[in-house]
């Protein structure tokens, strides 16, 4: 009887696994894998404009050399990294500080629920709207922020934020920081709440103070979550588009243009140089894939454990199912 059952499970049910995963696989092949390969192929052609004949290049890598020696692309790539660093360092610092405050077991902050709701809020609002709202707030010579600056006597005259390279960069970084610190904080808090309370109790018994507990127990135990935050933020940062594109149209003088803004402008404005945009995409793809591989490597062990557990649970369920039979 068990033999025939095994046969049932091993043979006739396996096809449902394939069948149920089929829509995902088909759509993935058509809408993700094929376009990705197609982007790779286009990077070796002279594709430009709409309706032009596409030819492979005689020198296959000339799009890549063009892109990597293009001053604008280099500026955009540097901006992308710079803007990400300028937003990530304050973001993770503030998120850690708030996590320490909100998870402290001795002195808790009251109204935490409301604070969390408000800190997270910018993350859920349309980024395009936020970009243009901040553009409106920093208008010159008459804008709400200039009103405040002159109202409290910080400056005698209005400051032209959108015309200053460094001010524009700082503001784009600030908007990114403002959108993401609440999200990072909630992720870190849930990481801290996942740490076994026994460790904290032991530290209490040993007479450790709050700072010692935070730096010697919380942070080491949070390592995986911190790395996860770092890598996901880095990948998101390398794709930064909405805020830089709409806050100040990448300007002034490309100071806030990112790699994604460059790719969009190359492919969808002016001469529509799809092939060069594809080469720039592939360059970004390689960097992002390397970051993903790093994340995959970091998360690998834990997932293997989860898979094992899943198998054990399945086995258990099966044994139970068999005993019912």
């Amino acid at each position: 009887m068990t033999g025939s059952q095994k046969h049932l499970k091993g043979m006739s049910y396996a096809k449902y696994g394939y069948l149920f995963a089929l829509p995902f696989i088909l759509i993935f092949l058509i809408f993700t894998l094929y376009p990705t390969i197609y982007t790779f192929v286009l990077a070796f052609t002279d594709a430009h404009g709409v309706g032009n004949e596409v030819k492979f290049l005689d020198e296959p890598f000339s799009n890549f050399t063009k892109i990597l020696t293009n001053k604008t692309f280099i500026t955009c790539f540097k901006n992308t990294v710079k803007l990400w660093i300028m937003n990530f360092i304050p973001q993770i610092t503030l998120a850690m500080l708030l996590t320490a405050w909100f998870t402290a077991r001795r002195v808790t902050v009251k109204g935490q629920g409301l604070f969390k709701v408000l800190f997270y809020m910018p993350n859920i609002i349309t980024a395009a709207t936020i970009a243009i709202l901040f553009n409106a707030l920093f208008q010159y010579p008459k804008g709400p922020v200039n009103d405040i600056i002159m109202g409290i006597g910080l400056r005698d005259s209005a400051f032209y934020f959108l015309n200053s390279k460094s001010a524009s960069q700082m503001l784009v970084a600030f908007i990114q920081f403002w959108i993401w610190y609440g999200n990072t904080m909630i992720v870190l808090i849930s990481g801290v709440l996942g740490i076994s309370p026994d460790i904290y109790e032991a530290a209490d018994i040993d007479g450790a103070n709050s700072a010692q507990i935070f730096f010697q127990i919380t942070i080491p135990n949070l390592k995986t979550v911190l790395l996860y935050t770092l890598v996901t933020s880095l990948i998101g940062g390398l794709n930064m588009f909405d805020i830089p594109k709409l806050f100040n149209r990448g300007g002034p003088d490309n100071a806030t243009a990112t790699a994604s803004v460059f790719i969009y402008d190359k492919a969808f404005t002016g001469k529509q140089l799809f092939a060069q945009a594809a080469a720039a995409s592939i360059f970004m793809f390689i960097i992002i894939a390397a970051c993903s591989a790093l994340l995959f490597y970091i998360m690998r062990d834990k997932d293997a454990i989860a898979m094992e557990k899943m198998k054990k649970a399945e086995l258990k369920a099966r044994r139970k199912g068999a005993s019912v039979l």
Partner: peptide, 21 residues
């Protein structure tokens, strides 16, 4: 699934657009 989870759709947008066109 794990490997592609982190790769954003924007990096293949050029091929995607051409294909859709």
């Amino acid at each position: 699934i794990m490997a592609i989870m982190m790769i954003p759709a924007t990096v293949s947008s050029i091929g995607f657009y051409q294909f859709m066109y």
